Deep mutational scan, measured.
Amino acid sequence: KKKYVIKVYFEDTGKEVEIEAESKEEALEAAKRLAEELGLKIKKVEIYP
């Protein structure tokens, strides 16, 4: 089964997080949740198959 690796870059902090997920949708949801939890804004998202 294919996994996606999503790199999320946050504004202000210069922080980046990698998330593995089964689908792009799932990964983007996780990225949004994470940003909310951390109180950060997402600057850029890169998706690698």
Rank of each mutant, 00 (worst) to 15 (best):
A31D: 00
K15H: 09
E36C: 03
E25S: 10
T13K: 09
K24T: 12
I19A: 04
A27I: 03
E26I: 07
E20A: 10
E16P: 08
G14H: 12
I19L: 13
I19S: 02
K24S: 11
A31G: 05
K44I: 11
E37V: 07
E26D: 06
L38V: 05
K2W: 15
K15I: 09
E11S: 05
K7Y: 04
K2F: 15
E20F: 07
E22H: 12
E26Y: 06
K41N: 12
V17E: 06
F10R: 00
E36M: 08
E16Y: 08
G39P: 00
I47E: 08
D12G: 14
Y4H: 04
L38A: 06
Y48R: 15
R33N: 11
Y48C: 14
L38N: 06
E22G: 07
E20K: 11
K43M: 12
K32F: 15
I6P: 00
K3W: 13
E37Y: 08
E11G: 04
K7Q: 03
I47Q: 04
E18Y: 05
E26L: 06
Y4G: 01
K24Q: 08
I42W: 02
L34F: 05
E29H: 06
E25M: 11
L28D: 04
V17W: 12
E16H: 06
K2E: 15
A30S: 10
K32A: 13
E20M: 13
V45R: 00
L34R: 09
K2L: 14
I19D: 01
E11M: 15
V17K: 08
K2H: 15
L38E: 04
K2P: 09
L28T: 04
P49K: 05
V17F: 08
D12T: 14
V8T: 01
V17L: 07
K41T: 12
V45T: 06
K44L: 06
K41Q: 07
I6G: 04
A27R: 00
A35G: 06
A30T: 12
G14T: 13
K43N: 14
E22V: 08
K15Y: 14
A30V: 15
K1F: 10
A27S: 04
D12K: 11
A21M: 08
S23C: 08
V45C: 13
E26P: 01
G39Q: 06
V8Y: 03
L28H: 14
V8H: 00
L40V: 11
E26W: 15
Y48L: 11
A21C: 08
K44V: 07
Y48A: 09
K3G: 08
K15S: 12
E37A: 14
E36K: 12
G39I: 01
L34M: 15
G39M: 04
D12F: 10
G39A: 03
I47R: 02
L40D: 03
S23R: 03
K43C: 07
L34E: 03
A27V: 05
E22A: 12
E36V: 14
Y48M: 13
Y48P: 03
I6Y: 09
L28G: 04
K41S: 14
A27E: 00
I19F: 10
D12M: 11
E29R: 12
E37I: 11
E22L: 08
A30C: 10
L28I: 06
L38W: 06
E36P: 01
E11N: 11
G39D: 08
E29Y: 15
A35V: 02
I6N: 00
E20W: 05
Y9H: 07
L28F: 11
P49R: 04
V5P: 01
L34T: 12
V17P: 02
I42D: 01
E22C: 14
Y4K: 01
K41D: 11
A30M: 15
I47L: 12
Y9C: 05
K1R: 11
L38K: 04
Y4D: 01
K3I: 08
E25N: 06
V5R: 11
I19C: 04
E22M: 04
Y9F: 09
P49W: 09
E29T: 14
K41V: 14
A27W: 03
K15E: 10
E26A: 14
E11V: 15
I19T: 03
K1P: 15
K3D: 10
E25Q: 05
E16M: 13
D12Q: 05
R33S: 05
E18Q: 13
V5Y: 12
K41L: 13
E26Q: 14
Y4F: 06
V45A: 03
A21T: 05
E22F: 05
S23K: 02
E18S: 09
L34G: 01
K41C: 15
A27P: 01
A30R: 11
E11I: 12
K24F: 06
K32S: 14
K32C: 03
E25P: 08
G14A: 09
I6F: 10
A27Q: 00
P49Q: 15
L40G: 02
K1L: 13
V17C: 11
K15P: 13
E16S: 13
Y48I: 07
I47W: 15
E25F: 07
E26F: 13
L38C: 04
A27G: 15
A30I: 14
K15N: 11
I47A: 05
E37N: 09
A31C: 03
Y48T: 07
E20L: 12
K2C: 15
R33H: 11
E18T: 07
D12Y: 13
L28S: 06
P49G: 05
K7W: 04
I19W: 15
V45Q: 02
E20S: 09
I42L: 05
K24G: 13
Y48S: 05
V5E: 02
V5S: 06
P49I: 13
V45D: 01
E36I: 10
A21R: 07
D12R: 10
E36F: 10
L34N: 02
E46P: 00
V45P: 01
K44E: 12
E36D: 14
L38H: 03
V17A: 08
V17S: 05
E46A: 04
A31H: 00
V45Y: 10
V8S: 00
E18A: 05
Y4E: 01
K24M: 09
L38M: 12
K44C: 06
L40H: 10
E11K: 05
I47P: 03
E16F: 08
Y48D: 04
A31T: 03
V17Y: 14
K1D: 14
E25K: 08
V45F: 09
K44F: 09
E16G: 08
F10M: 02
K7N: 03
V5I: 11
A27M: 02
R33F: 04
K1W: 09
E46S: 04
K3T: 07
T13Y: 11
K43R: 07
E11Q: 13
T13H: 06
E26N: 06
L40W: 08
S23A: 03
P49N: 11
K15Q: 06
I19R: 02
K43Q: 09
K7D: 00
A31S: 06
I6R: 00
K2D: 13
I47H: 08
L28P: 01
K24A: 14
A35N: 01
K44T: 09
I42V: 05
E46C: 04
E46V: 14
